[in-house]
Amino acid sequence: MMNDVDNLIGSYFDGTLSPEQKGAIEELLTQSPEARQRFRLLATIEDGLVERALKFTPAEIQTPPSPPALKETDRVLSWRPLAAAITGLVIGALSATVLWAQSTPKVPRLERIHIPLSDPGFEEINTPIPTVIPRVFNRWNGDPSHTVSSGDSIVKPKEGEFMLKMLPVEDRKYSRIEQIVDVGHLVPAKGGRITFSASVICAGADRQSKTILVLRSFNMDFREISGSREKLQEQVTCETRRTVFSSPGSTEWLTGELTMDLPENTKTLVFEIAAVDLPKASSESSRYIDDIKAEIVVTPPNEFQQ
């Protein structure tokens, strides 16, 4: 009997419930307090397994050896940043780099590990950008802003159908967003070099404006990041920033990129984008962000030895 209940509840959580099964489970849950408690227990297990899988160490995974020409895994990156921990293991150099490396064997092949930022192109329009406190992992935190499509603006997204429109914050010169990413299982033992890029466009600006990319690394677990900037500053192991200047009247997307050497034992990265001197809401000028990318370039061991 319990197997039947478990199967019905399991199908519900798997998203494979048929309409007939839906009727059966609803009847069961209406009538049986024991079934309702079993439902809550299985929901707790569901959530527990999701969390436990995040700690699933690479050593536990029987990953097949990477092919010579590595390419991105066919897995769909999800909202969990630790997808990187798994996915990153089977991601190798970009094809061009590999081909080049194969034809010139004296040059070490640079392995690139994609960092799966959550919603890097702001395509998940149902995901609101929340306020910065309290910080929540695996998604964009920050000041109020909108995801907009090309239909909402004269500006076309850099990629996909949507982009982020930064909104001014009262009594503040800037507006910002940030994302905290767990990279503990991604960063090679001896560190590596990370690149972080974002595209910016300032539509209708009548003066030069700037957008700042900031990247900070931490040795602390992402769960320990409490949201206190003061505390974070004490814990930062490395910080780099890059300013993207937009000229008045600019109508082109500008891509800013920063590079930073990752300290050993980096567990957490915080990606931040700050739009400075945003125009008032009534202004026709707007700042848009799109197409955010990040990857770790693994430094070959012999490079460290030289």
Partner: peptide, 27 residues
Amino acid sequence: WIEAIEGCLAKLPPRHRTLLLEAYEPG
């Protein structure tokens, strides 16, 4: 319940535990 999950997971045979965790692996 949450505290007991890890211990009960550990009681599964390794191949079943791996299969289960792989199913919940992000992505």
